[in-house]
Design a protein around this nucleic acid. Structure first.
Lengths: 154, 154
DNA sequence: TATTGTTATACTCTATAACTATA
DNA sequence: TATAGTTATAGAGTATAACAATA
């Protein structure tokens, strides 16, 4: 990990930019996520967690559907799934309805691991939201969604 | 660019997570930033813009100081500076006070380019913040800073 | 000894293009 | 023809370790 940012530099207009605040906050939250998992002897990225949740809640979905839901290319997904499969968390089964497609699902170990991961994520969320009231957290998420909708329609 | 996310999937607990909203919003804002620059025939990432602003506002700073301000390792900075220098935006001069260090600065072309970039960034910011009132934008930035402070102290 | 910048190396995320098997 | 998954390849961002020059 790199050293903490130097606060003495002149940052000009940057602190007033939404994108700048977004990037810096996301970076800090990501680091907290990683630290939370590392402290528990686990290793998982936010993206991997999101993927596992999607597979659990939509068992049998195809790689194409998953890639679309994640907003990434299908080729990008392949090595990610390979890694999670090698860890025994996830399986690719043949689709019963389409010979080209895979039906994705969690393994039993993946299910129990995801339960553990979810607890860690909740602890992490509680910590990063600790400086906000429940109402502020809801406001923040709602404002982020509004910004996302506005940015998406370019 | 990948296709838009599929809205029909069950996302479980994800929409209530701050980190999830943060990642998705940042991704959309980043795409808007890239699209804004592409439409103007320019190419720059948010990180490169931030770096150029830092160099302009703190002319003569060293690579170590810049890396610290950006929160990245000094070795990570080298290829980034190489690229910006190859584009004629930035120069490494010898530090007058420390024979080991470089004094970073913008070239005249870098100064004029940064002025153009800043206009594009303002247009981009205006668009992504278009769905929020001025007060909401201030609230959003303030809440993000509070979260960042809480996440940083792990 | 410690610091600055560089290089070598490695890993992840991202994409495009081409291939295969199926539809 | 079109789609699902894979592979090959490439570029950017990130890091650690080791090195030369300098402090």
């Amino acid at each position: 990990m790199a050293r903490p940012p130097d606060k003495t530099l002149d940052r000009g207009m940057l602190p007033s930019l939404l994108g700048y605040a977004l990037r810096r906050t996301q970076s800090a939250v990501f680091a907290d996520f990683a630290a939370t998992f590392a402290k528990a002897g686990e290793a998982l990225t936010p993206g991997e967690f999101g993927l596992l949740v999607l597979v659990e809640r939509n068992a049998g979905l195809s790689q194409m559907a998953l890639a679309r839901a994640l907003g990434i290319d299908r080729s990008t997904l392949v090595p990610i799934l390979n890694r999670l499969q090698a860890r025994g968390l996830l399986v690719r089964r043949g689709s019963p309805t389409d010979g080209r497609a895979h039906a994705l699902g969690l393994t039993p170990h993946g299910e129990t691991a995801l339960a553990t991961f979810s607890k860690l994520v909740k602890a992490h969320e509680k910590r990063v939201a600790s400086s906000l009231s429940a109402a502020e957290t809801q406001t923040l998420i709602a404002l982020l969604e509004k910004v996302r909708a506005a940015a998406r329609s370019v």
